[in-house]
Design a protein around this nucleic acid. Sequence first.
DNA 1: CTGAAAGCGCTTACAG
DNA 2: CTGAAAGCGCTTACAG
Lengths: 367, 367
Amino acid sequence: MAENRKAPSMPTANPSGANQRRPYRVTSFDVAAEAGVSQSTVSRALAGDPVVSEATRARVAEAAAKLNYHVDENAARLRTGKTGTLAVVVICRPGENIKDFNPFYYALLGSICAAASRRGHETLVSFQDLPERLWGRYQEQRKADGIIVIGTSENREAWDYFHDLGQSDGNHLVCWGSPFDDLDWVRSDNDAGARLATGHLLEAGYAQIVCIASETSPQRQFKERYDGYATRMVEAGLTPRLVAIEKGYSREEQGRRAVAALIASGEAFDAIFAVCDELALGALQALREAGMAVPEKVGLVGFDGIRAGAHASPPLTSIEPDFQAAGTMLVDRLLALIAGKPAEKLRVPVSLLERASCRQPKAKAAP
Amino acid sequence: MAENRKAPSMPTANPSGANQRRPYRVTSFDVAAEAGVSQSTVSRALAGDPVVSEATRARVAEAAAKLNYHVDENAARLRTGKTGTLAVVVICRPGENIKDFNPFYYALLGSICAAASRRGHETLVSFQDLPERLWGRYQEQRKADGIIVIGTSENREAWDYFHDLGQSDGNHLVCWGSPFDDLDWVRSDNDAGARLATGHLLEAGYAQIVCIASETSPQRQFKERYDGYATRMVEAGLTPRLVAIEKGYSREEQGRRAVAALIASGEAFDAIFAVCDELALGALQALREAGMAVPEKVGLVGFDGIRAGAHASPPLTSIEPDFQAAGTMLVDRLLALIAGKPAEKLRVPVSLLERASCRQPKAKAAP
DNA sequence: CTGAAAGCGCTTACAG
DNA sequence: CTGAAAGCGCTTACAG
């Protein structure tokens, strides 16, 4: 065993009747003694410094394995100033049950953590909601090298807080879902997605297509999706029609109320493009309650490709962003920012997720 | 500004033409200079040590705020040996798309992070799947004080790895979903939940109730739920019937296949208790395809209370664990373990989540 | 109640 | 290619 330490009273096992002493910890000095080299050589060898000879490296590695030695990251980080950690902040609605949280963001969170891990970084995750508990001083505390912020755009105070943080110099921050345009962000290719959804409905023979959306929501992506829909409609020689959502309800409830209002208005419609799946699922319920068969009488396409859509009846056709790409792009963008590269706004590719809430296309358009 | 630092070449702003120097960082020495006290007093004041006078504490706090000073946690952790961080490991199936991950675990993850935050701890989250990339040496690296492991019980290699880790001394580990009984765990009150589900079906007038489950699955909870169902059936003078799931399919597919097999067997049944919601959602699809109306012809109750169940048609009645309690119990158990308290197995309370896949009870049983 | 000093366990110039 | 030494920025006995 290694005995050669700065002030070791009893290097082996626990100090017997000792008074609440700190538990003994294997350090690079112990490994050095075991391998018969200096502590600095241990550090270099384990860090893979090419300057150490292969023979030495192997001897050190063996000693480290034998003693189950692992670098104390706090010491390493203190010394180098780098943490190898990214903070991921998930913004929730205040008071919302964590179980009712939008599954889209959970999937995005998973994809971010996986991407960070692939890039050799840890992820420090926090769910934040209440204004008095907002916290983003991860870099100042040297807990992380940068921050990724995702989550509901409805929590204005939280976004204001992180917006300010992102402005202050030295802070690296990238986000998804921000109501602000001046931060570094990654978003779905909303224009392409909305056009894809609308085109799909058109090809299936629907013509009176309305869009459940908002032009004023802090969720910027809704406006972008509406615009994509509107453009595609005009291209087809049709008039876009917006059914606006009402503030202050859950997405699902907003979808339900939008359909109720639409039916009450008496205006004819045979298809709906809802700018997110949670709206679409609410819309689907309202259509079912009104006895309007989907997809026979009314076609329905959502956006986000959440898993719950697959369990709806009929399963919801949707536009799905490439989740894996989304996580990777957020992480790589943040890493670039940390490395000093200039800000950039990125789009995640989307694709049509055909399920069963829309009829089969009458004739596939030639490419 | 504070000028009084060990080796400050240019304390203000960035060193002009300096060669890749470390960016200047505000330290407790700067705050000390600003407040006119010693560095040790700054440390004590900011840590809330009651020994410092209120006047001094206020002066220090003001100086710290003015300089936007935050304690470098790496230095603090190196010194104290505590990290204030819990590692949360989420075990996935290898190769599984992160989007298809069981939403139950996402909700549990959210609840754990929230609970840790309430207890003043950070959460270091990782999603792990591939055997060669398993990693749990968070304590050895001093990145965390303990580990919470959750996720699919299907990834045997991952659980073996963390099982070994939990055995090795000094490691603090608590889990949910472990196929092992000898680790510290927290689970749903599966017996009570299964009895509740079965009783609910009985009260609604169903009598030929089968259970989609497994007695041999590594997912121990499935066996516990089956046993609870069986006990309740026997109490009602009925014979329990198990429809076993087949290995190697997704939960949803297992549910679908179980119902298909049940129908093919020709045995009469009028209700199903599925031991998890994903099984139940698959079962629901198979019932629909077979033209068996739910809840009129067949009653169906699941377990876990996942959000997707609410979007099914009909919405799925289920047994819901108290998610908030689950996160809190996992965190508190781990904190107790870290504090040296002995191991313990805990049960999370469950309740009936009435939706619409089961008829209304004919007569409420007297309490 | 406050300060001077030691030391947590690394990484990395600086010598050789 | 390897070693001796400095120092990252704190907390906490030890004095006063």
